[in-house]
Design a binder for these strands. Structure first.
Lengths: 119, 119
DNA sequence: GATACATTTCAAATGAAGTTGAACTATTGA
DNA sequence: TCAATAGTTCAACTTCATTTGAAATGTATC
């Protein structure tokens, strides 16, 4: 992750609608959620608006989409989120922070499928 | 951390100058860095611009300032950063992701002073 | 108390981002 | 192939954020 990617990603989640979508997809995990289901959860939002924001998130590299029949399923890109966190916290405390180093390494292991054990 | 605080924080770090400042202060740790030193590191930026961005970051709750003689020292607010990360990743994978839970707990322990051991 | 230093505040100018509804494309099923 | 469903694209409108330099504030030093 370089600075421009990080800036794009932070800009993406600094919008209320997009932040809600990303959090929804983080909870949804690898299965993701159809655009229509996302729109329904954000009650009152016209489809063009949701589509606009989903495309912004996709351009920012935070979510990806796949077609399933008539629906388009969006899901969070977990490595992108963990890279984003790493970009922000890396080299914390003059590069000598063991807790952040460990936390960054753990986030990198999240795949969108529940992990029931931690090494 | 509520949604509005998170939105403000993400908006704050979605600007190049501010993201650079925050990362600089994350590295600097609890000691922080004088506004002048920050401006110098961001070569070419007029003081009024740095001051504007520092005040945005302070309003967003990501940094704090203290006066030391003629200088004003800015430092990252580490709990705010860890709360921000938690806000984004909380309930990951339908709330059953052990790695993210652990990572969030670790970030919460970062104080800005190097930690040499991790439990 | 005058001067230099460190930083903030202000107002004006510029540029970028979000919302809307209507029209368009793609897929399924009768 | 016609209609229904699921999403996307487009253009016009509105709103908000960023940059700049000049002037003002607060602090130390001579």
């Amino acid at each position: 992750m370089n600075e421009n990617q990080a800036l794009g990603a932070f800009a993406a989640i600094s919008n209320q609608t997009r932040l809600r979508i990303v959090r929804m997809l983080v909870v949804a995990g690898a299965d993701g959620r159809a655009a229509g289901a996302i729109a329904e959860a954000l009650e009152g939002a016209p489809p063009s608006r949701i589509s606009f924001h989903l495309s912004q998130l996709e351009q920012a590299g935070l979510v990806e989409s796949r077609r399933e029949g008539r629906s388009i399923i969006y899901s969070a890109i977990f490595p992108a989120l963990s890279d984003l966190v790493a970009f922000l916290m890396r080299d914390c405390c003059e590069g000598h922070c063991a807790v952040c180093d460990k936390a960054i390494a753990l986030f990198a292991k999240c795949t969108g499928r529940p992990a029931h054990s931690v090494d």
